[in-house]
């Protein structure tokens, strides 16, 4: 009846993550034998690494063409018909970002991640729903953690009570000792007299 024992073991929550990890590992290593290649026909393509920075563009790895607020940049979205202003957001720079871009050619990342960047285009404009979800996950996890922390793992009211009690206890003990001392001394005095 060995299979029954194995089945019983599976019913223990502690073994489950390890079993899962084991299955995952096996499948991952099987992936090495699967023929894989990147399909070059992708959405939102970008130039080869370091090409833009070698060209000395001021907004280096994220320059997607276009003129600020006039001409949309080059963006390849899945359903362009759903996004009317596609590419315009990459063509937009906040005044602060424009000022920074006039200073140095090496701050492209910062500029393009500030409002009006390419990532904003992808994150908020065409795939905004994803962002909502991802940030919801973040918010929920923090709500869970902070609730637990405030109400349980970090609740200091109990410990304060304990500390007070301990302090009282020790005060009581000290008082008792004192009283006992005095009694003893009185006895001693009486005996001496």
């Amino acid at each position: 009846m060995k299979i029954g024992k194995i089945w019983n073991k599976l019913a223990d929550p502690k073994t489950v993550p390890r079993l899962f990890a084991f299955c995952l590992g096996i499948i991952l290593i099987l992936g090495l034998f699967v023929p894989m290649a990147l399909n070059p026909d992708q959405l939102y393509t970008r130039p080869a690494p370091q090409v833009q920075i070698d060209d000395g563009l001021p907004i280096a790895p994220y320059d997607r063409g276009g003129v600020v607020l006039k001409e949309p940049g080059i963006i390849k979205a899945q359903f362009p018909e759903n996004s009317k202003e596609l590419g315009m957001i990459t063509g937009y720079m906040s005044p602060l970002a424009e000022w920074v871009s006039s200073i140095s050619p090496y701050f492209g990342t910062s500029i393009y991640s500030s409002p009006g960047g390419l990532i904003d285009e992808v994150l908020y404009y065409t795939r905004g729903f994803d962002t909502i979800l991802e940030s919801s996950i973040l918010m929920m996890a923090f709500i869970i953690a902070s609730w637990l922390a405030i109400n349980y793992t970090m609740d200091r009211r109990d410990i304060e009570k304990d500390l007070k009690k301990a302090a009282n206890d020790s005060a009581n003990v000290a008082r008792e000792i004192k009283i006992n001392d005095e009694k003893a001394r009185a006895k001693q005095l009486r005996r001496d007299n």
Partner: peptide, 10 residues
């Protein structure tokens, strides 16, 4: 970094 995913890197 070598993929130039700089924001992700940050």
């Amino acid at each position: 970094l070598s993929y130039n995913h700089v924001l992700a890197l940050l």
